[in-house]
Computed example of a mutant assay.
Amino acid sequence: MNMPDFATIDWRGRAVQIECAWIAPERTDAPLIVFLHEGLGSVAMWKDFPAQICEAANARGLVFSRPGYGRSTPREDNEIWDVDFMHRQAHEVLPALFAALKLDHEKPWLFGHSDGGSISLLYASRFPERVSGLVVLAPHIFVEDVTVANIELARTAYLSTDLPKKLARYHDSADSAFWGWNRIWLHPPFRDWNIEAELDAIRCPVLAIQGIDDEYGTLAQIRGIAARVGGGCELVEIPECGHSPHRDQPERVTVATAAFITKNRRQTP
């Protein structure tokens, strides 16, 4: 992965710096995979996994940190995300980033983990003609009790352990990353968040992967995706695997992703 660079977008009335890193940009004729991180993720937290995926799939890659994460512009002190925060990322931030990077002509593959998986689904729902396919790991399409319970535990850990210090390795502002994510997920109105109906508009192929031991969601999440998407959906349910399949079972995820992209590239007219 190349050293991170920055793209500037206009979002919510201010200039926001987005941390970006490219993988194998010299593969100019190869497909582009865009990696969307989890609720506490960043460019650095992916480590070398995106490069492994791109090598296996013979692809180029774009890894970026969403606003408030990594080296991207932190949240302002008074900035509190609302129930539509993932919709805003999908409908506003991602198109603005693609425009800033002059990728409007591309039809990328989106590879999203957790919140990043949900944002990928929402982007493909709003812009079905702009996506070649989706790989989503442990995505959320509705809120479950187990998710909220473990996010409450994360809040306790952040207040009482060295978790802020650990997150500071990956974020310029650990508070920006943690509280932006934690407060909205524990905001009572967010319990009604549900994107199932929006999945009907997705027309690209989808690979949905989840660990059987996922502590932040049940298999009802990816099975719910398979019941709704219009472009076809493959499910991979991995034993001995928690909420981060790319960390717990990286080889399984890499093989499944490369096979999925290779197969569906052949089938594209």
Rank of each mutant, 00 (worst) to 15 (best):
H113F: 00
H187E: 14
G61K: 00
A201E: 15
R252V: 12
L153H: 02
I238L: 13
A100M: 09
T218R: 09
F85V: 15
F35C: 15
W185Y: 06
S244L: 06
R130Q: 12
D29S: 15
A51V: 04
R14V: 01
L163C: 08
A259K: 06
N150R: 14
F85S: 14
L36T: 11
I209F: 03
A227N: 10
L163S: 05
I195M: 10
R14D: 07
I119L: 00
A96G: 09
D48Y: 01
V93N: 08
N78F: 09
A197M: 07
L121S: 01
E152P: 00
S176F: 05
E38Y: 04
R88V: 06
C54I: 02
G224L: 11
V143W: 07
A30E: 12
L167Y: 10
R75L: 12
A124N: 03
C233K: 07
A256K: 11
A57C: 02
W193K: 09
G39Q: 06
W11Q: 14
A57N: 00
V93G: 10
E92L: 04
F190V: 04
C20E: 03
A208L: 08
S114R: 05
V83E: 14
P205I: 08
D214N: 01
P4W: 12
G180I: 06
A174H: 12
L219Y: 02
E19L: 11
A96L: 14
V135W: 02
R75G: 04
A90Y: 00
A259E: 14
A154R: 14
G242F: 00
R266H: 06
M86S: 09
W11I: 05
F35E: 14
H113W: 08
V83I: 15
P108R: 09
A157G: 00
L101F: 08
V253T: 13
E26N: 13
L207P: 13
V131A: 03
E76T: 13
S42R: 07
L167V: 04
D172P: 01
I80C: 09
W22T: 02
R266P: 01
R14Y: 02
N58W: 01
L32G: 12
P245T: 05
R228F: 02
L153Y: 00
I151N: 03
P245K: 10
T147P: 00
D104L: 07
